[in-house]
Each structure stands twice: as C-alpha cells, then as structure tokens.
Nucleic acid binder design. Sequence first.
DNA 1: AACGTGACTGCCC
DNA 2: CGGGCAGCCACGT
Length: 114
Amino acid sequence: MERGHFFSRVWDVVAQIPPGRVTTYGHIAEHLGVKRSARAVGYALNAVARSDDGPLALPCHRVVNRFGALTGRLHFETPDVMEERLRAEGVAFTEDGCVDLARHLWIPEAPVES
DNA sequence: AACGTGACTGCCC
DNA sequence: CGGGCAGCCACGT
C-alpha cells in the first residue's frame, strides 16, 4: 500500500471527507501544500482504485473536479456508481450532472497530523 | 536515468 | 464561448 508517502497523505484527507459532502482535487492538493499538483491527487485515487475497491472503503466518490463534475466515474465498477453513492448520501446535482458545490463543497480544514 | 501518462487547473488565443 | 497549451507532481516502464 505504501507505494509513496504522498499517496497515503491523499488517502488520509479523502478519508476525512464527511458523508454528503465532496471536495475537489485542487483543494486536496492545496491542503497538502502542492496546489499545482491536482493531477497527482487524481493519480493517487487511481492507484487506490486499482489496488482496492471495497475493503479500503475510501470514499473516493466524494472527490470531484473544480466544477463538481464526476471526472473519475469511469474508474468505478460502473460509470453510475459514483453518482449513485453521492445521491444516496443526499448530494444534489445540477442539470449538467455536476455536484452542487455551493451546497456540498467541503474543504479539508483539519491539518494533517505529522 | 529519461520519457510518457494521468480521476487537474489556470491562462491565453 | 470554445479549444488549446503549459505547469506541477508522482509513478510505471
């Protein structure tokens, strides 16, 4: 699992996202002090998705892009899983199929214990 | 060690 | 308004 310290840090933040809330790759990156590396964040989730999908129980479905679009839905078992899980948590979507960030955006406040 | 790839973002044309 | 280019970070080959 420890393929890199960075991954663990990302997973730790994702694990803190409360149900019914979502955050963006950019916010996670910013929280980690590397605002310009939102890509690496997505890469970390891609890695965890390939590694494990259930047991880890990492709420990767609560991570969306800056517009609230479910850019990573194709990485789930089925393209609908991501939206289904969010809706199940009471997350509202816009006509465009994007998460209503104005209502559900969550920004990591808790500092990474280190 | 170098190159290519990616669940991103922002700026420029 | 839409599409394209560049920047940044980490990882696999």
